[in-house]
């Protein structure tokens, strides 16, 4: 469902050209759970931004669901992000002045759904992560783990085809992190493709497929047949 051919990204900082990504070739199938690892500054985040259509690559071709998305304009990319992709961030990135209900509502508003359908989806998504009863709370009234679950609910409310997670457990203690991971695996089991950037070697080893990036290039693409759910 996701196919990258010779993807490259070059930044121009002053007079110096920096290659953040170089010759990335990658194919991810529907329903996969892929982890991405690599040292700081290796290009993981740039990869995620390109995969998530937040930025365009400067070279190569990117097919999403068979559609060439490498050179789309802002409006079309925004639409695809909204309909096909869900984002989860390390620092949750909830809107501090919106309550949980309204936070989950944000992507649905941009999709232009009707009131009834939005309400139904929000209820479903928040119930899914066990926080429907706290829908009137503001993010600051929740723990970190709960906040991340809201972020996941927000990502899922639009029923995206795949989910991009940028160190989703990076700000959580190990027990809470395990809870979030099992939630992600559950989601994956229901058919959503997940690409997750992580620093945690344990998470990387336990995933069915791990891609290791170094200096903007794929160093290793390891697949395991045995999915070990922690």
């Amino acid at each position: 469902m996701l196919q990258m051919t010779n993807i490259g990204k070059t930044f121009l900082t002053g007079q110096v050209q920096t290659k953040a990504l170089d010759q990335i070739n990658l194919e991810v199938d529907e329903g996969e759970f892929v982890t991405i690892t690599g040292p700081s500054g290796c290009g993981k985040t740039t990869f995620l931004n390109i995969a998530g259509l937040l930025e365009n690559a400067t070279a190569g071709q990117y097919l999403l669901d068979g559609e060439d998305v490498s050179r789309l304009g802002d409006r079309q990319r925004a639409k695809l992000r909204n309909q096909k992709i869900g984002f989860i961030f390390q620092s949750f990135n909830l809107m501090p002045d919106l309550n949980l209900f309204d936070n989950v509502d944000v992507p649905l508003r941009y999709r232009g759904l009707g009131r009834g359908e939005r309400h139904q989806r929000i209820e479903e998504a928040l119930t899914n992560v066990g926080l429907w009863s706290r829908r009137k709370h503001l993010p600051a009234q929740l723990s970190g783990g709960q906040q991340q679950r809201v972020a996941i609910a927000r990502a899922l409310a639009g029923s995206p085809r795949f989910l991009l997670a940028d160190e989703p457990t990076g700000n959580l203690d190990s027990k809470t992190a395990a809870g979030v991971m099992s939630l992600l695996h559950e989601i994956n089991a229901k058919g959503t493709t997940i690409i997750m950037v992580t620093h945690d070697p344990v998470l990387a080893q336990n995933s069915r497929r791990n891609i290791d990036i170094l200096d903007g290039q794929i160093r290793d693409d390891a697949r395991r047949n045995t999915a070990a759910v922690a």
Binding site: D74, A78, Y110
Partner: peptide, 16 residues
């Protein structure tokens, strides 16, 4: 800026 980034990730285009 951060909020704007999130909104764009969630599907807001620049004109919205």
């Amino acid at each position: 800026s951060a909020e704007l980034g999130v909104r764009q990730a969630l599907g807001a285009n620049k004109s919205s």
